[in-house]
Design a protein around this nucleic acid. Structure first.
Length: 807
RNA sequence: GCGGUUAUGGCGGAAUGGCAGACGCGCCGGCUUCAGGUGCCGGUCCGAGUCAAUCGGGUGGAGGUUCAAGUCCUCUUAGCCGCACCA
């Protein structure tokens, strides 16, 4: 009976859970709640990726463990279903995106259920459901009403193939993240969300939550707070040019200035510039480049000197040239910088190429060879009234001086940019605004939400760059809610990030028709106790959703400043060749095949056993065989001699002599490891335990019962089946076995005996021996080895080792 | 270029500063089997060794701290991930 019929058993228990609504929860004030969340997937046409089950299983293990511990556990699931791949597929195959989405969700649901996740399916959400996106639109309207949504003409990333604007975040290697076509820059009027207004709070409130350090750092670096100063430079054209610098202390070393090709002064100064055609040509070339190309490393510094206008350094009144170069971006700071080639690498390279003077203003480096950048401990030189000061003192003094003389001021900048919220697509939430000739942009009444996507034949993007909705007269023409006059609807839709920025709130009250969720239910379930997701969402989804949550806090919808108490991140599952899985590499593994060949429990177990949960791990077909083999051995425990214990023991931890310490230790290890994402070693401990059981040759009821409960969160189907067969009842209604710390240790332990740190002997002693007993035992084990040597020091680690330092 | 991260047997990976290689895969030998497969038992870091006791070496590289370093410190190399040259 080595092989068990996993297909039948897994089906049986999945049906049982469905019929009994085993994992459906409601608010129960008598129980402590636990809200555990995984990132809801985008239901793509390819079906579930073999990587999906890794985080879902991990959090499923946690959820199942918490239930065994008596918590009221909310573990919900849903679909982040708007998005371009669906739209592209729909266009290509002439099917409506809604139909494609429904089909994909059906497939994803079938696959997810086949793995036995303990989701509360009654709370399933779908971002494309009008009953859901009604509230996405509602949140947008509140942002609009508070002035946090605004329209702005700006250069955006334009995908030449998809005919849509991409957020910077969606551009990968200079091409479209989704279709890989060329991305160019194009000026368009876009809806923007003022996430920058929340920049400081998004940094500060990280202190109150439990995030991995790498996630916390990524967010802080992404937000990128810097303190510096804005400085006004007079120019020979009359206008003042304002620059932003983080190093005002190096102002005496500023030997030229660089402005962005998009800087408005170029147009303003057109009459004065003797080389305007050259500048215009450079500007046009820069405009064709994507941000990535402009920022590509190792490229030659390029630029054009403005012939006809120069700037005056305010500290020494020296006239310095102005260059235009594409490494200065209009979107950060003031679009103009003062260049200090002595102390900035890029400026140094630029100065070398254009043969500009390099002045040392902080002593300590060799500016002939390279820029002296890490100069915080240096002393100011060639800097007039700053000479002799430390960098820190110079910063303070020059900033005061600039302020007093009204030529500058301290300034904090953030790298974070406002969120480009418009998409010229069909398959997204319509933006619920109308444009009235008299009243401008006006919100539609909340009673008219949801503003549904019109069901149409053509949802193909227009060549002009407008949303497909723009071609629908019946949709765009409407009346102004304020003055009643003719008005036109906004035709852009929202980005995919919108629906995922608040879905965790809807899970608390998914069928509410009057509010996005009731206060009472939000109070009960929020915050999320544990949120696991991919590192790739650290700076986008995580930041966007924290921003929305803070906004909802400000307007009184939610009562917590942060949505996620604890965040963890899993590593990707790679192909067997250690490469990212992709169709083109031919290394894709289909979960359906794995479940058919090895079963869902084996799949779950293998994905948890493969390695450190937080690191990438390659798929291995032989690896999953090992896990299947382990489950066969678990199943075969039913064939072992059932040892009769001295006392009836089905309900107590009455383990047989010799195995007791192993059981207590394993309970301790498994429970500890699950909390610390060390699923691999938890499973290893269970494997070791079963090896010991087989070595003992028999098992008693308490042992079988404990073993099955410990394994249950990892492999829920086989353990439920065996639990029932053994007459123990329904496993998920039980409690987690407890361990006794005092019983975790064996009676005897083996210690290492070292001389000068090298193991020279071993000895078995009674556990818990005192120092002198250990020394006596160690010396006798060493015998004559110590003769003629002087013991300088004796180190004793209880129950572990003795080390003699000898001469 | 910046930020993050990783490096341990043939492979995936274990090791609160305390016996490196748990657990699994693979491989080798044996048993079971008509055979293949499955299952079971034993072995498996490298090199010496009277192939036994034992000895030496070993966690990307070079130093250092320590009685003791995969683990801590300094420098360094390579891979992977992200990026908006952020002044």
């Amino acid at each position: 009976m080595g092989n068990y019929d996993y297909t039948a058993i897994e089906k049986k228990w999945q049906n049982y859970w469905d019929e009994h609504e085993t994992f459906k929860v409601s608010e129960d004030k008598n129980k402590e709640k636990f809200y555990v969340l995984v990132e809801f997937p985008y239901p793509s046409g390819q079906g579930l990726h073999i990587g999906h089950p890794r985080p879902y299983t991990a959090m499923d293990i946690l959820a199942r463990k918490r239930r065994l511990e008596g918590y009221n556990v909310l573990y919900p699931f849903g679909w982040d279903a708007f998005g371009l791949p669906t739209e592209n597929f729909a266009i290509k195959n002439k099917i409506h995106p809604a139909a494609v989405t429904a089909e994909n969700i059906k497939n994803f649901t079938r696959q997810s259920k086949a793995i036995g996740f303990s989701f509360d399916w009654s709370r399933e959400v779908n971002t494309t459901d009008p009953e859901y996106y009604k509230w996405t639109q509602w949140i947008f309207l509140q942002l609009f009403k508070k002035g946090l949504a605004y329209k702005k003409e700006m250069a955006v990333n334009w995908c030449t193939d998809c005919k849509v604007v991409l957020a910077n975040e969606e551009v990968v290697d200079g091409s479209c993240e989704r279709c890989h076509s060329e991305v160019v820059r194009k000026v368009k009027s876009q809806w923007m969300l003022k996430i920058t207004e929340y920049a400081q709070r998004l940094i500060d409130d990280l202190d109150g939550v439990d995030y991995p350090e790498r996630v916390r750092l990524s967010q802080i670096n992404w937000i990128g707070r810097s303190t510096g100063a804005e400085v006004d430079f007079k120019t020979t054209a009359g206008e003042t040019m304002r620059v932003y610098t983080t190093r005002p202390d190096t102002l005496f070393g500023a030997t030229y200035m660089v402005i962005s090709p998009e800087h408005p002064y170029i147009e303003k100064w057109a009459d004065r510039l003797n080389n305007l055609p050259e500048i215009e040509e450079y500007k046009a070339a820069a405009g064709r480049k994507s941000d990535f190309e402009r920022s590509e490393m190792n490229k030659d510094k390029s630029g054009v000197k403005l012939d006809g206008v120069s700037a005056i350094n305010p500290v020494n009144n020296k006239e310095i040239p102005i260059f235009v170069s594409d490494y200065v971006l209009m979107s950060y700071g003031t679009g103009a910088i003062m260049a200090v080639p002595g102390h900035d690498t890029r400026d140094w390279e630029f100065a070398r190429k254009f043969e500009l003077p390099v002045v040392e203003v902080v002593k300590g480096g060799d500016i002939e060879k390279e820029a002296f950048v890490d100069c915080d401990t240096g002393v100011m030189v060639n800097s007039g009234f700053l000479d002799g000061l430390s960098v820190e003192e110079a910063k303070a003094k020059i900033t005061d001086w600039l302020f007093e003389n009204k030529i500058g001021e301290p300034k904090i900048n953030y790298k974070l940019r406002d969120w480009v919220f418009s998409r010229q697509r069909y398959w997204g939430e319509p933006i619920p605004l109308v444009n009235c000739g008299k009243c401008g942009w006006v919100a539609i009444p909340e009673s008219e939400l949801p503003l549904k996507l019109p069901e149409v034949e053509s949802y193909i993007p227009t060549d002009t760059g407008e949303s497909p909705l723009a071609a629908l007269d019946g949709f765009i023409n409407t009346t102004c809610p304020e003055c009643g006059g003719d008005a036109k609807r906004e035709t852009d839709t929202m980005p995919q990030w919108a629906g995922s920025s608040w879905y965790f709130l809807r899970y608390c009250d998914p069928h509410n028709k009057n509010e996005l969720a009731s206060k009472e239910k939000l109070d009960y379930w929020m915050n999320i106790n544990w949120y696991n997701g991919g590192m790739e969402h650290t700076t986008l989804h995580l930041l966007y959703s924290r921003f929305w949550h803070k906004f909802l806090y400000d307007i009184g919808v939610v009562t917590t400043k942060e949505p996620y108490q604890k965040r963890t991140s899993h590593g990707m599952i790679l192909g067997e060749d250690m490469q990212k899985m992709s169709k083109s590499r031919g290394n894709v593994i289909n979960p359906d095949d794995v479940i058919r060949d090895y079963g869902a429990d084996a799949l779950r177990l293998y994905e948890m056993f493969v390695g450190d949960f937080e690191k990438v791990a390659p798929w291995s077909t032989t690896g999953i065989k090992g896990c299947k083999r382990f489950l066969d051995r678990v199943w075969a425990l039913q064939n072992l001699t059932v040892k009769e214990s001295d006392t009836p023991c089905a309900e107590v931890n009455d383990y047989s002599k010799g195995l007791g310490a192993s059981f207590h230790r394993t309970i301790k290890k498994v429970t500890y490891d699950i909390e610390n994402l060390k699923f691999n070693t938890a499973i290893a401990a269970l494997m070791s335990l079963i090896n010991e059981i087989y070595a003992a040759g028999s098992i008693n009821k308490a042992e079988l019962r404990t073993f099955l409960i410990l394994l249950n969160p990892f492999a829920p189907h086989i353990t439920e089946e065996m639990f029932e067969a053994a007459g123990f009842g329904i496993l998920n209604e039980q409690s987690l076995p407890e361990y006794d710390e005092a019983l975790c240790v064996d009676d005897e332990v083996e210690i290492a005996i070292q001389i000068n740190g090298k193991v020279r002997a071993k000895s078995v002693i009674r556990a818990g021996c005192d120092k002198s007993a250990m020394l006596t035992s160690a010396k006798s084990a060493l015998g004559a080895t110590l003769d003629g040597k002087t013991i300088v020091k004796e180190i004793v680690v209880p129950d572990k080792l003795v080390n003699f330092v000898v001469r």
